[in-house]
Design a protein around this nucleic acid. Structure first.
Length: 879
RNA sequence: GGGCGGUUAGCUCAGCUGGUUAGAGCGCCAGCCUUACAAGCUGGAUGUCAUAAGUUCGAAUCUUAUACCGCCCACCA
């Protein structure tokens, strides 16, 4: 009989329920002390490097990070286990607009104003805020178990990155790829800054189409134009019709008395105008509409800006001056009505652009801005993906979207009217602003230093994404040819949500190729976005949002009342559908969180995050923990010396061979799926192996075997050895996604094998299955398991005999059950043409009639020109 | 307006190149504190695989159309 000792006698510290909190802090400290994540460019091994997508420095961890960092850490730990020279550089982003906003609002609450404070003082405030808030995200990343090299932590606005930015700017400037120009930019009237096209979010809103009548100057009547924005008519400088529009040819060249302004404007023709929209006549306001701007340029029309930078009407707006744009709209419509010039107003769906941070309605605005010429950069960036040098995963649809974007790029407006950011390294001569100096060094250019009063630096800063675009290179020391850069550039993979493909990924590729001369990464892995369940109570026709506390109850129970409807929506605080990773960690542990998001991370899918999954994986972690407790109990009588003779020296029973064979399969599957970024498959494979195969079957069989036998028997030694071998391998396989509990268990096993008897060294193990794995002091620097040869169950009769034997053994302990025993049945048929197909069908039918084949895979391969060989294989369930 | 993806059990999802009886977790029903685990074990119920047609000996899987949901892109005033 197995010695009747209980786990609590044996290891009182191993609680029945896994307690994540202590275990996690213990290993976090241990890893930190041992500096396992510190990378050395001179170390051996293939280079593997990831640059973290830098979270906003003042942000807090949200579930998107939970997913993003889990995937990266899983990859990093996996490749580290494979013996590569791994570097994961952490860092944070200064997030220009977002951060400046927060500080402006904070000062506002304190009754201060940045303009009164001045630039210097304000920036000091921002830095102060950054220092206070800036550590949070880093600490939270650590809690997630991120195995970053913290000694290389970077910030997009620190001195090294600032230098990279200046050098990049200067090189692009000297090459003529950066220029200053007048342009109609997306103006955010709240942040008072220009935004790039990608920083504008569009929403469908119900607006109105106003049909305005403009009188012809010759008094021959009026024409009607349609507009959604009547207030801009004050800046109209033409009315356009399509050149092929027969109806209005007689008007072309005539002048119009523009109401309310006293100005006359011409009727012109332009292809842009659609004949079938509205009346086929369009008012042209070059200073307030992107299309009109282009048309204005084509026709040399004057550009009249009628608004101030905070979207009020300016003094060119006559009596409307000072009004907010929406007040002005009302007032102008009223005026038209009063003049009898308002033909009609009809509801009209329209798309409103809003600043992605301030949510203010964007006002197109004429101003001088800095631009990067994108066309030449885009050509290279497109080619790199076309040639396969850079892979975008999942390929569909993102590669197509990438190409589409690269084909339709507009120049990138990089100047922002903010203070928080990299200041544009340009100085203008006061006496002649067209004289400029671009300087990449620190401090002032020599000419400016010599005559500081004659020069002035550009007031604007660069778009945050300018420094982000340099990130993979700048974190490795570029523009210097550092050891790090040589060793780890290009980085291996970039992991990010698909929402920033254009903001960031595309620009990194462009800058990497142009400035460093090499691509910034080899793979781009785009994961889905995370959605949260939002609950609405239906009251009559209306829906009312269910508050977060109650929503969480529905989340946990998975049930809700009949009058409540659930919808998956992007997580946002106002919706109350946010799941806080730290709350999850506190409740279920980091491993469970990581397993959950990893298990959801199928290529190319958005994630509808269901709270109940956390519980599911928490239970899994606990199951694994308890399996380990059992194994430790059962293996107690096993002397380490005996154990170390290795698994080859045991005479294995069929179930031992079966579980080892399954282990082999799961090793192969784990390796393949991780190589292909199929995290969901990786998690599912191990989940099933541990719960279904190892726990439900193998452990139970071992128990059955134990009764009525002498524990000193060879059979016991084989079982205990197998138990321990499988457990140890599983620790290593799961470590990338589930680092804490595996590390804990692995160390206990290690202590059992290595340290039980004095004088036994770690490397003394002879078993090829164990190899030298215990020579490593931690799973963090261990070795990824390799599939072992010779453990596959043999085919055919021998296997069947073995299986029957196993079934007998199982029936003894558990009655009649099905055994998920897998085997291959191979039949090779050679046939010619269609004639052979009949034979093939008969064989298939025969196999089916056995009614025992779970799965039947048929591979047809041509082995010779005139022959096809068909190999039929299947997995059988023995009853 | 173009392009893409999804629709499988009450809920959240697997099901990869077509193969026989479509799976898991949660929930539900019955029975279990069996000496690893009640965060568990055993057994059970539950599906016209969105709809329709087509290809095939055979379709959740391939083709086509339709419906609904979602995403991306686009200059329609």
């Amino acid at each position: 009989m197995l010695k009747r000792i209980t786990v609590s006698q044996l290891k009182p510290e191993l609680s029945k329920q896994y307690q994540p909190a202590e275990v996690e802090t213990k290993w976090l400290d241990f890893w930190q002390e041992q500096q396992y994540f510190k990378a050395d460019p001179n170390a051996d091994g293939e280079a593997y490097c990831i640059a973290i997508p830098p979270p906003n420095v003042t942000g807090v961890l949200h579930m998107g990070h939970g997913l993003d960092e889990t995937i990266q850490d899983t990859l990093i730990r996996y490749h580290r286990l494979q013996g590569k020279n791994v570097l994961w550089v952490p860092g944070t982003d200064h997030a220009g607009i977002a951060t400046q906003h927060v500080v402006v609002e904070k000062l506002h609450r304190e009754g201060k104003n940045r303009h009164e404070m001045g630039r210097e003082a304000f920036l000091e405030e921002v830095w102060k805020w950054k220092e206070e808030a800036g550590g949070t995200i880093g600490r939270q990343l650590r809690r997630l178990g991120c195995s970053c090299d913290w000694s290389r932590e970077a910030f997009t606005l620190d001195e090294k990155r600032a230098r990279a930015v200046r050098v990049a700017f200067k090189r692009l400037y000297d090459k003529g790829l950066i220029y200053r120009g007048e342009y109609l930019v997306n103006w955010d009237p709240v942040s008072l800054t220009a935004l790039s096209d990608d920083e504008v979010d569009y929403e469908d809103e119900q607006g109105f189409l106003y049909h305005l009548k403009y009188p012809l100057a010759d008094g021959s009547g009026t024409i009607t134009v349609a507009t959604t924005r009547p207030e801009t008519m004050l800046g109209d400088t033409a009315v356009a019709v399509n050149p092929t529009d027969e109806r209005w040819q007689h008007l072309v060249g005539k002048m119009i008395n523009l109401p309310l302004t006293g100005r006359q404007i011409p009727v012109i023709t332009d292809d842009f105008v659609k004949k079938d929209f509205g009346t086929g006549m369009v008012k042209i306001t070059p200073a307030h509409d992107p299309n009109d701007f282009l048309m204005g340029q084509r026709h040399g029309l004057p550009m009249i800006n009628v608004m101030t930078d905070d979207a009020k009407m300016n003094n060119l707006a006559g009596k409307f001056a000072g009004m907010d744009r929406y007040e002005a709209r009302k007032a102008i419509v009223e005026e038209f009505k009063a003049l009898g010039l308002l033909e009609k107003v009809e509801p009209h769906p329209m798309r409103i652009g809003r600043g992605y941070r301030s949510k203010a309605v964007i006002e197109p605005r004429l101003s001088k801005q800095w631009f990067v010429k994108i066309a030449p950069l885009a050509a290279q960036a497109k080619a790199a993906v076309e040639s396969g040098e850079i892979r975008i995963l999942p390929q569909t649809p993102w590669e197509g979207i990438y190409f589409n974007w690269m084909n339709n790029v507009r120049d990138w407006c990089i100047s922002r009217q903010l203070w928080w950011g990299h200041r544009i390294p340009i100085w203008y001569k006061k006496s002649d602003p067209s004289v400029m100096i671009c300087f990449e060094g620190e401090g002032l250019p020599a000419e400016v230093a010599a005559a500081p009063n004659e020069w002035v630096q550009d007031e604007d800063v660069l778009d945050t994404w300018f420094s982000s675009a340099l990130w993979p290179a700048s974190i490795l020391g570029w523009p210097d040819e550092t050891e790090d850069l040589k060793r780890w550039y290009p980085t291996s993979v970039l992991v990010t949500g698909h929402d920033i493909l254009f903001f960031w990924v595309a620009r990194m590729v462009m800058f990497g190729l142009e400035l460093v001369g090499r691509k910034p990464f080899t793979d781009v892995y785009m994961h889905g976005l995370i959605f949260g369940k939002t609950y609405y109570e239906k009251i009559g026709q209306d829906y009312k949002l269910i508050p977060p506390m109650q929503a969480r109850e529905f989340d946990i129970s998975g049930e809700m009342p009949k009058n409540v409807e659930a919808k998956w929506e992007k997580m946002s605080k106002s919706k109350g559908n946010v799941i806080d990773p730290l709350e999850v960690i506190g409740e279920y542990g980091t491993d469970a969180l990581r397993l959950t998001v990893g298990g959801y991370a199928a290529l190319g899918r958005n994630i509808d995050l269901d709270w109940r999954r956390f519980q599911n994986y928490r239970n899994f972690v606990n199951k694994f923990w308890n399996a380990a407790r059992f194994v430790l109990m059962v293996t107690e009588p096993l002397k380490s010396e005996e154990f170390r003779r290795g698994i080859e020296s045991c005479s294995l029973e069929v179930e031992d061979r079966w579980i080892l064979s399954s282990l082999n399969k799961v090793i192969i599957k784990s390796t393949e799926t991780l190589d292909r970024y199929e995290f969901d498959q990786y998690v599912a494979g191990l989940y099933d192996f541990i719960w279904l195969n190892y726990c439900d079957w193998y452990l139970e069989m071992v128990k059955g075997r134990a009764y009525g036998h002498d524990e000193a028997e060879e059979s016991h030694r084989a079982a205990r050895t197998t138990l321990l071998v499988v457990l140890e391998h599983v620790c290593r396989l799961l470590h990338p996604i589930m680092p804490f509990v595996t590390e804990e268990i692995w160390h206990i096993i290690r202590a059992r094998v290595v340290n039980v008897e004095a004088g036994v060294s770690a490397s003394g193990a002879t078993s090829s299955l164990f190899g030298d794995c215990f020579a490593a002091p931690s799973l963090c620097v261990g070795a990824w398991p390799k599939p072992s040869l010779g453990l596959e169950l043999a085919d055919s009769e021998e296997t069947i005999a073995l299986l029957q034997e196993a079934v007998g053994a199982i029936r003894n302990i558990r009655g009649e059950m099905r055994v998920p025993m897998e085997m291959k049945v191979g039949v090779t048929i050679e046939h010619k043409d269609a004639a052979g197909r009949d034979q093939l069908s008969r064989v298939r039918g025969h196999l089916r009639s056995l009614a025992r084949v779970d799965q039947l895979k048929i591979e047809e391969t041509a082995v010779a020109p005139k022959f096809a060989s068909t190999f039929v294989s299947g997995a059988m369930t023995i009853l």
